[in-house]
Simulated scan of single mutants.
Amino acid sequence: MNRPGPKIPPLSLTDAQGAVLEGWVRRRTTAQALAQRSRIVLECAEGHSIREVSRRLGITADTVGTWWRRFLERGLDGLSDEPRPGVPRKITDADVERVIVKTLEEKPKNATHWSTRSMAAVTGMSQSAISRIWRAFALAPHRSQTFKLSTDPLFIDKVRDVVGLYLDPPEKALVLCVDEKSQIQALDRSQPVLPMVPGVPERRSHDYVRAGTTTLFAAMEVATGKVIGSLHRRHRAVEFKKFLAKLNKEVPVGLDVHLILDNYVTHKTPAVKQWLLAHSRFHLHFTPTSSSWLNLVERWFAELTQKKLKRGVDRSVQALARDIRAWLADWNDQPRPFVWTKTADEILDKVAAYCRRISDSGH
């Protein structure tokens, strides 16, 4: 039985202190360390024990105790980092905050993002000082990533369904991650590739000659990492049915087959549904829309792209197909599974926290 943990000396926050702490938690430009310390004080002020606050915030009890005591002793000033020995600081906290606010809330007049040079020119600081501030607060204006949140109304149910197959697969059944990699191009460089020599990397011409495309249908066995593949010129429902027939032939008769796949229209045509009715051991599990990360075969496609396709040279579709089949056969000689570790609750909690953060930012 878990004990609630030691009680904390009670303290009533003033309205002003509470407002400041809430502001630090909600403000998008607050350093993560200060935001976390503010959450600790607010949680403790509600009467929760150190252990309970530790569990709720996912941090150690020692961390909770340290910042609660610092607040008891010194108030809001106690939540700032202790001064370190050495040469006195030339850049004040206000200077640091000014750089952070500009980085997160403003843009330079002549560019889409800040550089150390442009920020230094505006703030009057050195480029090295700007670089140190950005590194300290994990800011990288030159970097950008893409994302898309799923709007699938059955997002939660589908996540639990797919992750359940990964973490607790049914008995006497095979779980396969299925997808097609379409428009794989056979590319031949306009000039011969120059091999790597000491001090000089491999070189290839920037332009190329297209020789046609092919589509790879792949089904990766979750338990072993073995992949069943089939190449086709197109990726219609007709080709998908042929691939299903191939799976039916290669999977032992006594096993049920659970397929994890996306919502592409060819997976749901009347012809496919009719085929599934005639083969009752096949069960389809669809990932949420815009959630290809939930399908492990995408990770295998990344391996294929990085290790074979990205720098491959093929003068015809037939040559490309031979290369892919050879790579697939080599993979299946020593397959390795991609082990899923996150539970559905962990995934959903992370998505919910991200959505709250976006909502709190005012964007």
Rank of each mutant, 00 (worst) to 15 (best):
F240K: 04
L244Q: 02
D256S: 11
K226M: 12
V227M: 08
H232R: 15
V238Y: 11
H235K: 14
D256K: 11
L247N: 05
K246W: 04
E250V: 14
A245K: 15
L247Q: 02
E239W: 06
K241A: 09
G229L: 00
N263E: 09
L244E: 02
N263S: 11
G229K: 02
G225T: 04
G254T: 07
F243E: 00
N248K: 13
V257A: 08
N248H: 15
I260T: 04
R234W: 14
L255K: 12
G225Y: 03
D262L: 05
L261Q: 09
P252M: 09
K246S: 07
V227G: 05
K241C: 10
H235D: 11
I260S: 02
G254C: 06
P252T: 08
L255G: 08
H258R: 01
H258W: 03
V257M: 12
K241G: 13
V238H: 11
E250H: 11
R234P: 06
K226C: 09
F243P: 00
V257H: 07
H232L: 08
I260C: 03
R233D: 14
V227W: 01
E250N: 13
D256L: 08
L244H: 00
K241H: 10
D256R: 09
A237E: 05
H235P: 11
I260L: 04
T224I: 03
A237W: 00
D256V: 02
V227L: 06
R233N: 13
V253N: 13
T224K: 03
A237F: 00
L231E: 00
F240S: 03
K241E: 12
A237S: 05
S230M: 14
I228W: 10
N248V: 08
L247Y: 01
V238D: 10
K249C: 12
V238I: 13
V238F: 09
F240Q: 02
S230A: 14
L255E: 10
S230L: 14
R233F: 14
V227P: 04
R236F: 10
V253Q: 15
K246N: 06
G229I: 00
H232F: 15
K241Q: 13
A237D: 01
I228P: 06
G229S: 05
D256F: 06
E250F: 09
E239K: 06
V253E: 15
K242V: 11
S230P: 08
E239F: 06
V251D: 02
K242H: 13
K242Y: 13
P252L: 10
E239Y: 07
I228T: 12
G254D: 11
R234F: 14
A237C: 01
V238T: 12
L255S: 10
G225I: 00
N248S: 15
E250T: 13
K246P: 04
N263W: 08
D262S: 05
L231V: 01
K242G: 14
